[in-house]
Computed example of a mutant assay.
Amino acid sequence: MIRWVITFLIIALIAAVFGFGGIAAGAASIAKILFFIFIVLFVISLIFGAVRGFK
């Protein structure tokens, strides 16, 4: 999932350099959403991994 975040971030940077503001903003917002989903899934996996380790 972090690979998708990096991909959309690179797309946003390239679009911003070439002056495509709308595309850059869209790609940056997608990258932000995917990043937060990644963080939530990471924290959930840490919690369930810790719970599974205590059993």
Rank of each mutant, 00 (worst) to 15 (best):
G49L: 10
A50T: 08
F8N: 10
V17F: 08
I47C: 09
I44A: 15
F54L: 14
G26Y: 02
F42G: 12
F8S: 01
G53R: 15
A25S: 04
F20G: 08
F18M: 07
I30L: 15
I2A: 05
A12N: 03
K32S: 15
I47F: 09
A31K: 03
F48Y: 11
A31I: 02
L34E: 10
S45P: 00
V43H: 10
A16E: 06
I11L: 08
A16Q: 10
I47E: 05
L34C: 14
M1E: 09
I11H: 03
F18R: 07
I37C: 14
I6S: 10
F8E: 05
L13E: 12
T7K: 09
A50Y: 14
R3K: 12
V43I: 15
V40I: 15
A27Y: 05
I11C: 09
A31G: 15
L34V: 06
K32Y: 15
A27S: 11
L41E: 13
G26L: 11
G53E: 13
I2D: 07
V51I: 15
A16W: 00
K55S: 08
L41H: 13
A28P: 03
T7R: 06
I33G: 14
V5F: 04
A24R: 01
I11Y: 04
G22A: 05
I47Y: 06
G53F: 14
L9R: 13
L41P: 01
A28R: 03
V17S: 09
V43K: 10
F38H: 13
F38L: 14
F38Q: 13
A25I: 03
F35Y: 15
A31M: 08
W4V: 01
A31H: 10
I47H: 05
A27V: 02
S29P: 01
W4E: 06
A27M: 08
F8I: 00
G49R: 11
I10H: 06
F18K: 07
I23M: 09
V5E: 06
I10N: 08
L41T: 13
M1R: 07
R52G: 03
F54C: 01
W4I: 00
A12M: 03
W4L: 04
F48P: 00
R3E: 11
I30V: 14
R52I: 09
L46C: 09
F20Y: 13
A16F: 04
I33V: 14
S45H: 14
I39Q: 10
I23N: 01
I11M: 05
A31Q: 07
I2C: 00
A25N: 04
I14N: 06
M1Q: 09
I39R: 13
I2V: 05
A24K: 02
L13K: 10
L34Y: 10
I33C: 09
G49M: 12
I10K: 10
R52A: 13
A25M: 10
L41Y: 13
R3C: 01
I14Y: 00
G26D: 02
F48C: 04
I14A: 15
A15D: 11
A24V: 00
G19N: 11
A16I: 01
F48G: 03
I47Q: 03
L13N: 12
F42Y: 13
S45W: 13
V40P: 00
V51H: 10
